[in-house]
Design a protein around this nucleic acid. Structure first.
Lengths: 154, 154
DNA sequence: ACCTGGTCATTGACACATCATGTACCGTCC
DNA sequence: GGACGGTACATGATGTGTCAATGACCAGGT
């Protein structure tokens, strides 16, 4: 490796690597627990939560995509798979012939009602139980700051 | 949603959501910059870095998998794809008939030498520039603590 | 020599993400 | 009212991740 490259200092590297590793392991653990306990994937979960947050239990594709920060195409594929499994359904849109709603099905409601408490418990057990409330706040502050930074950086 | 489920407090939820969102966005940004600047994916990068860290430029599958925390099968698939693109090569193992080495090719070396400084610069620009050194240390400490916690938690 | 259990790696099937492209419909401007 | 640019969503190709099953080999006991 070239020595004049702006490499990270050992101190920076330590934090950066720990952060990356944590992301990987935590998402992996949460994902696999979700999967084995409730037969839902992370994307499944995100979509069902977004739909149950809606009193009507349905959302336009656009809106849903924005709420959970999915690209349109990704959402389209994901919904197609979830329809096959009966978790959600499509519904044509009367006002706009192009558009469509995604609605949560009975089966979807049942699935998310099983999954949600288990998932919350896992988040608590795997992350929250490991750190103090102050640390959690600090983590949230830092994350929020970086997120703002990301929005204004090329 | 059932009201007696152990939901997160608003305060907890704020930090948790920010953390999740940061992970998603940051990995997405880093991945796509890497891809467009150097034609390497995240997994490609991780593997090439691990191989160049080795003086011999080669590693057994097991060892490589452990170093970068990949499952065996994942690594096998990934290596197969990278061989097709000429970034690495496989080499039979004389001592152990089952095993094999992964070695980095000339082309792999070139690729990583282009990608590494760009990637480091991106990490700096997207994350390090957004927070103070103290915050970075704090982040690293928290991450390290959670990682230890994860190892001893079912 | 031959099981036998464990280790090393591959493979196939499927879920997921992303990119580029396609199709149908909207609104508007002429 | 017909062409046109833009919006909403779908689709296919390719790369990636995970699980379960498999093959190939090692080492140790009998």
């Amino acid at each position: 490796m070239n020595d004049d490259t702006p490499w990270l200092s050992p101190r920076e590297q330590r934090s950066w690597r720990a952060f990356v590793r944590l992301n990987q392991k935590l998402t992996a653990r949460l994902g696999s627990e979700l999967q084995s306990q409730s037969k839902l994937s992370g994307p499944d979960f995100a979509i069902l939560v977004a739909l149950t947050d809606e009193p009507s239990g349905r959302l336009r594709f656009q809106e849903l995509a924005k709420n959970i920060d999915f690209e349109q195409s990704r959402l389209s594929h994901q919904i197609a798979r979830m329809i096959k499994r009966g978790l959600v359904a499509r519904e044509e849109c009367a006002e706009d012939g192009r558009g469509a709603f995604v609605t949560i099905t009975e089966q979807g409601v049942e699935a998310i009602e099983v999954a949600a408490p288990l998932h919350v418990a896992a988040v608590r057990r795997l992350l929250l139980d490991a750190i103090s409330p102050e640390d959690l706040d600090a983590l949230g502050d830092i994350a929020a700051r970086v997120l703002r930074h990301l929005e204004t950086t090329p």
